[in-house]
Amino acid sequence: MTVQDKIAMPRPSLGFWLRNQMRNVAPFATLLCLVVFFSLASPSFATADNLANILTQISVTGIMAVGLTFVILCGEIDLSVAAVANATGIAVAYFTSQEAYVSIANIPLPGWAAIILALIGAGVLGLVNALGLTLIGIPSFIMTLAMMQIAAGVSAMLVRGQIAYAVPDIVTTIGSGSIHGVPWIVVLLACFLIVGHVVLTYTRFGRYVYMVGGNREAAEYSGVNTKVILGAVLVISGVCSGVAGMAGVAHFGSAQQNEFDTYLLDSIAAVVVGGTSLFGGRGSIGNTIVGLCVLGVLNNGLDHVQIDSFLKILIRGLILLAALVINVYAQRLRDTAAVRGEV
């Protein structure tokens, strides 16, 4: 309308960029520090074999973390991932014929049927979460906490304190086989990460996930069906957990109760340590990958150095705390920046 001065393209300074990228830079720096530290502290850490070990160790956590990334990006949480994984792993064994000494009243089915049934089961558990959150309006924190119990109950009912060993062949291969020296389970993780990344970055659904997490009210006023999106991410999380559960059972070589208990904390930690905001809207599969590596390196590295194994638990806790502090601090920086209008 008036002759404006030519508007210069902004050239952000380095400090400005760093402050903006804090959420991405900090986890990466943490990873580098850990790798350098353990490489110096133990000659057995930085070897090709050990790298393969680390990748295998993070696979099950990683597959769950993919689903969780969707949920956390929406600003919600799924506390039932490990329990759902456990139940699915047990379910697939329940539908497979077991050795005679395993006295479970199970229903043997062909391998493919067992897998499909187990996966449907995981999806249904996710769907129950979704309905609780969207239709009834139970906060996801509470809803999935209840689901954690429900899934644990399903597991208990199916195995009744026993341990099952047999799972369908294909599941066994994925859990413990390898191709050209690369464990199948790592390949599976890679597939999940890639698909997760593609969906989040390049599809319309992915955009909605970010928008619903970024400002749910604004998404709603843009005509986005936020309930469908929230429901969908919980179902996705359920299915990812299910796959992780099956692969995990084959990987461990047995299906029993409570064998996934530590995975809940690990998968949430992986997502959050990677820098995905607990408040939603910011983060990516890339962040989750860094978070997984931090966790994997930490868990694995601590086994390579000579310290009290009880101390290790404490150290792990402290490092996770530090990561959470950074996450919340990054959010604070962003909020004050927003007040100043200099996002």
């Binding site: 928008m211 400002n215 009210e217 927003a338």
Partner: peptide
């Protein structure tokens, strides 16, 4: 506040 995404670029706001 209830219709815009402050941390996203203009085009994502305009296209949602």
């Amino acid at each position: 506040r209830s219709m815009l995404f402050h941390h996203e670029p203009v085009y994502k706001n305009a296209s949602i």
